[in-house]
Every structure is written in structure tokens, then in C-alpha cells.
Design a protein around this nucleic acid. Sequence first.
DNA 1: ATTCTAATTTCGCCGTGCCAAAAAGCGCAA
DNA 2: TTGCGCTTTTTGGCACGGCGAAATTAGAAT
Lengths: 220, 220
Amino acid sequence: MPTSTVEDYLKHILLEEERVPGARVATGSLAGALGVTPGTVTTMVKTLSDSGLVDYEAYGGVRLTAAGRQLGLHVLRRHRLMELFLVRTLGMDWSEVHEEAERLEHALSDRLVERIDEMLGRPSVDPHGDPIPSAAGEVAGHELATLAALPVGRRARVARVADQDAAFLRLVERLGLLPGTRVRVVARDAAADTLEVELGRGKSAALGLRAAEKIFVAPG
Amino acid sequence: MPTSTVEDYLKHILLEEERVPGARVATGSLAGALGVTPGTVTTMVKTLSDSGLVDYEAYGGVRLTAAGRQLGLHVLRRHRLMELFLVRTLGMDWSEVHEEAERLEHALSDRLVERIDEMLGRPSVDPHGDPIPSAAGEVAGHELATLAALPVGRRARVARVADQDAAFLRLVERLGLLPGTRVRVVARDAAADTLEVELGRGKSAALGLRAAEKIFVAPG
DNA sequence: ATTCTAATTTCGCCGTGCCAAAAAGCGCAA
DNA sequence: TTGCGCTTTTTGGCACGGCGAAATTAGAAT
């Protein structure tokens, strides 16, 4: 079985590949995401390549093999199921579960994951709206628009908040933009870099476009 | 923060001290319990001694310091709370939760442990009847008699099953000797090394004295 | 007392994962 | 096309946790 370090590498490569589809992942960006030095990543990535988990070319970045992708998806599944479990069953705040799941994702047996999945009713997304890969390693891939790109006047529903930073998540919650919330863009001011959205019951919220780009919405 | 290896050492020293009160723990028995070679234990135990977690004398075994005991109790608390949580909340079998908790005990934050403790109603024992140390590191120490020592005819209640082996636990469950069950010793045959106990509803069970020594009972 | 045995410690070694600093490669701009 | 800057790789070291073999010690037996 892979060490938890290997699991972390695969998970981050997977997330990076998902973020920029089709591209090879640079060792440097992995180093940043994992909080280690570039040299460490180069060494580790070569090890992963020897294990057949990634396809690596010097100076050319890295890409998951089918085997590596499978493993990475399993880690992601454990992580996201655990986040949902912590929120739903233990009543934890969605801003604190990421950290927690970061450790637990390496300590869950398949059997336990299966129980949790069953107990939660085989959910398809975690509390942030991120899709939960199935046990077979399939991800339901939604194509979502960001709130920043929503035309003024259009109604939509918050579907996903793509940032795990606790402070940002607390902000989103305070503004009332939790996944599921129905919104309508009232105004966009490109010069001021702000967006104003109307929520239910006459409430409204303002946020920067940079922030709005991290909030994804679905029609409805 | 201590590594999970350190946590395992402290936990096992604690368990061993509890098993044989007052005695120093031999490096050899630790090696057996931890599944490593004696030489490894000697080295590690010196490290623990340098960290002030144990009191160690060459050829004289080891004993926890106050700091080491505190840490060990926290690990044990996490382990046992998790076992109970897995049984009660996730419906897992009591014979499979030990293994699971063995990994999870190193991945639980204080905050999460507190939630679980609260959700379970601040329980004092785990599914095997083993006491759960409090957050402050206190253990309610029952003095229990073993089933093997119970006089013929005496009634009692199973309070604790002191063996984590899955096969043994399944046997105990099959015999109907789960903690809480009321029993009465019908016969003891020292020559044949067996004990016969009567359960409720006219049922009875036979087991060896060696096994009976691992089952503790309380009056009632 | 001496010898024997079993437990314990010492010693040299390996794999993993990390860092810092030096070297090498890549791409762009002058 | 030559040089410069940035990224990546290489190199050499370190800490941890582990192993096996050999040396040592404690303690029991004769």
C-alpha cells in the first residue's frame, strides 16, 4: 500500500490536472501545493514514475498514469466523503473539515469508507460542492460557470466553492452564499472589481471578482 | 507533537504497566507487542527517555513519567472513544473496530475527539468494557474479578473482555457473553480446564479457563 | 564460584522523505 | 545568437524508524 506521502502527491497532481485540463503538472507548482522544496518533488516524482504511477519527463512536468489516477481518486473520495461526514454527522463547520480530512484520508479503511458512504446515502458532492469520486473511481463532471461570469440579472444557484481556505469559507458563509443558495447578479463593476448579488429575502452581498471566480453556479 | 510511532510506544507501555501494576516494562515484551525487534525498542526507548517521556535504565526495563503517562492516556482515549463511535454510530462489529481505531487514533484532532465524546454522551467504557480516560487523563479504575475466579453458583454481569483478537471476540459474541450479559457459573472442571456458565433464557456456554480469565465480571 | 542461557544492548546498515546549495536546462529578449 | 533569468535537476547531508548480527550482561543452575 502507498505511503501517505505518495497519496498526497497523487492527490495534488490529480487536483492540478483537473484545474488545468490537458496540461502536464510542473514540479514547481507541486512543490508549492505540498509545501516542500522543488528538489524534493523531483526526487519523489521519479520514485512515482518508477512505480508506474506517473508519467514523468525531465523538465517536462508530470502526468498521472491510469494506475496513479485510480489511486488519487480513491484518496480524493476518502477526503471528500469524510468532509461531508464530519459536517453532516458530527456537526462540524464546513470551514474546519478540510484540515481534519487531510489527516483522516490516510487512515480510513475501505470497509469504513463504504459504511460512511452508505450512511450518507451515496452522496455525489461534498459540503463545498466538490464531486465525490465513486468507489470505482468515476467522477460526475459538471460543467459549471463561475459567479464572476454570470450576466447581470441572471438567476442561478451556488453549486460549488472552489477554495478550502477557512477564512474564505467563513466569509462565504457569513455572506450567505453556501452551496444551494439562489442568487441573482445585480451589478458588475469591472473598474471597481466588484460584483453585487441579491440573495433571497431582499438580502444582498458584495464581493470582489477574484473571489467570485472561486464560486461556481448552476442554472436555476 | 509526537510521531505516531512514539504514540504507539507510550500506549503499549501504558497498557503493559496496567496489566502488571508496579512493574517496569521489559523491552522484550514491548518488542513483541509492537512487532519490532528488541534492538529497535532499546533505541527508541532511549529516545523517549531523552524526551522525558519514560524513565529508563539499561537492563531494567522502562516506566512512564508523568508526561509520558499523560500522552499515553490521550492516545488510549482516542482509541477507545473511536472504537465505541464505530460500533454505536457506524454500526461496525466490535470484533473489527480495534484494527480500525489503531490507525485512526493517530489522526484525530482534539476538537474532533471532543465532538465524538459529546455525541456519545461522555461514555466511560468502550465496547469491550475497557475504561475510556477522560480528557484530563483520568481513568475510572474498576477492580473486576475474572469469570474464571467466580465461585460456582454465583451470579454476575460481564463487564469487560480483555482481548482484542477478532476471532476471540467473535467467539464471545457467538457464545452470548457480550458485556452487560448476566451469567451464572454452573460448573468448573479444573482437570478438564473448562468452565460452564448459564446465560439468560436457559442458554449456557462452555469455555476454557484460559479464555475465562480474559472475561471480567462485576457483581450483579 | 563458575558456567550457561536468555534477555538486552551495541553496531553497522537500509529506506524514506526532507532541505540547501550548486549545476544545468529552457526560453525569451536584445 | 548570445546572454539572462527562471525553473528544474543534481548533489550531498540529515533525521527518523527500522533491521540483523554480534557483543554484552543479568540471572539462574550446577
